[in-house]
């Protein structure tokens, strides 16, 4: 009878223990999906992934600025049952958009190059690349015109002639 009672107690403890553990796992998974759902609702946090272990949420992934990084943390910190947040999100600023600058330089280039028939110029990402040849005395005039177009840089591969 005593042995039977012991077995009962042991079984109960085991069952309870397993129950607690599995209950904990279910909780983490639930917290994680709730947190992820909130993150996914914000387009600027689309690159952020959350994992939850023992109610501690860890954020990974990338965002475009610091404010998005701290916003992600505050969103997840507000999720029920999250005890703390480890914020490992990386901030990677987006590549600047040079399309407007390229367009304005391209529009002004024919006029700037008009008196320099032996020079060719291309524009990409705000950088003007020069090829061809030029007389030394015309070079500064050309450079002044091109610098006035406010480029990011001028790449000068011109052959300079006396």
């Amino acid at each position: 009878m005593k042995a039977l009672r012991l077995l009962f107690v042991v079984t109960l403890i085991l069952a309870f223990g397993v129950g607690v553990t599995s209950c904990n796992q279910v909780n983490d998974a639930d917290i994680q999906s709730a947190a992820q759902e909130l993150l996914d609702a914000n387009p600027e946090l689309a690159g952020v992934t959350v994992t939850v272990q023992n109610k501690v949420a860890t954020l990974t992934g990338t965002v475009s600025d610091d404010s998005a990084k701290s916003y992600a943390e505050s969103v997840v910190a507000g999720v029920k049952n999250v005890t703390s947040v480890v914020n490992q999100v990386e901030v990677i600023p987006p590549a600047p958009d040079y399309s407007a600058l390229d367009a304005s330089i391209n529009a002004a280039l024919p006029d700037a190059l008009k008196d320099h028939a032996t020079v060719t110029a291309t524009v990409q990402d705000g950088v003007i690349t020069l090829n061809g040849e030029i007389k030394e005395r015309d070079l500064q005039v050309l450079m002044e015109k091109l610098n006035a177009l406010n480029p990011v840089r001028v790449e000068n591969y011109l052959t300079v002639k006396k």
Binding site: N147, A148, N150, P151, V152
Partner: peptide, 12 residues
């Protein structure tokens, strides 16, 4: 010869 490509001088 303005060849070092490291200066933009946009002066008006």
């Amino acid at each position: 010869h303005f060849k070092s490509n490291d200066l933009v001088l946009n002066i008006k």
